[in-house]
């Protein structure tokens, strides 16, 4: 094919998108570079494209004695694995149930919808978890975000888009609703389930607000919580000028090392799984 010349709109879009790409990319790259830099080199060349004096000092400090990073990783993995399993199971079952006709459907659906607009609010919810004795448990972190109404509604419409005849045919063959659900409907919904599983995992991986309150004052922690308290502790130490800059490691470097380690798993999988992430929002968009 003959190469056509780009017109001005194409040039404009390519140039402006490249600028935006740089603006998004540079802070990430800057963080990675700083995390591998020594304090001296950073003092001389604060903005460089490559570590001038490569070191693992910042990472060593981060993983050094008294570090709760592994605890935090453990906590996040527990919450992510069990949270995703439970949420997906509950939501898929609910999504399928709501896609069917049964006595009282309207009532049960309104029961679900109301929670989208109205809830106990911050203090009553917190007190409720306290009264149930759930404070300081990973279970509380999972429970607080176990049901996402929007997710269930999208699943409901996804199940509804499968022709009824398919289910009826199986029913005539003597299958129960349970068998139809497990043997006919679930296999057909694999792409939708894959998308939602990924997004649920990311949501649990990133959870920080409720863990801040629910795990407060206990030895349990999750990654985001760890990052937040680690950074603010470090800032306090810097302000109190406790000596910890020792030739190689330095505050910014250690902070960026922490950021890098916390976002590494998502960074590692995202480019390969991107299309599954995007598919989810398409489903949501179409259903609007």
């Amino acid at each position: 094919m003959a190469k056509r010349r780009w017109d001005s709109v194409q040039i404009f879009s390519a140039v402006s998108l490249t600028l935006i790409a740089l603006v998004i990319f540079v802070p990430f790259w800057n963080a990675v570079v700083i995390s591998f830099e020594t304090a001296d080199a950073y003092a001389k060349h604060p903005f460089s494209w490559w570590p001038k004096e490569f070191t693992l000092g910042n990472y060593k400090y981060l993983l050094g004695k008294g570090s709760t990073l592994f605890e935090a990783y453990k906590g996040t993995i527990i919450v992510t694995v069990f949270g995703t399993l439970c949420e997906m199971a509950i939501s898929v079952m609910a999504g399928y149930a709501y896609s069917r006709q049964f006595p009282g459907k309207r009532f049960f659906f309104v029961l679900l919808l109301i929670t989208m607009f109205f809830g106990g609010g911050l203090v009553p919810t917190y007190l409720h978890y306290k009264n149930l004795g759930l404070l300081g448990t990973y279970a509380s972190v999972i429970l607080i975000s176990l049901v996402d109404v929007q997710k269930i509604i999208i699943m409901k419409s996804s199940f509804e888009s499968i022709p009824m005849e398919l289910q009826e045919a199986a029913m005539i063959d003597g299958a129960t609703d349970m068998t139809v659900f497990a043997k006919v409907m679930l296999p057909l919904q694999k792409p939708m389930i894959a998308t939602f599983t990924l997004r649920t995992m990311v949501a649990f991986w990133n959870t920080w607000y409720w863990p801040t309150l629910l795990l407060n004052g206990t030895n349990k922690t999750v990654l985001q919580l760890y990052l937040k308290s680690f950074v603010s502790n470090l800032d306090e130490e810097v302000q109190a000028s406790t000596v910890f800059v020792e030739g190689t490691q330095f505050a910014q470097g250690i902070k960026m090392a922490a950021v890098f380690i916390v976002m590494l798993p998502i960074m590692a999988v995202y480019p390969f799984l991107q299309k599954y992430f995007t598919k989810g929002i398409m489903v949501g968009a179409v259903k609007m």
Binding site: A94, Y98, T115, V123, P124, L127, L143, L146, M178
Partner: peptide, 26 residues
């Protein structure tokens, strides 16, 4: 529809226990 109710039970129990119950605190 008994199996449908069974599939619906977890979410309904959850909603009652963790979405509706805290509302008394309002």
């Amino acid at each position: 529809a008994r199996y449908i109710y069974l599939l619906l039970a977890p979410v309904v129990i959850y909603l009652l226990m963790f979405n509706y119950a805290p509302m008394y605190g309002i």
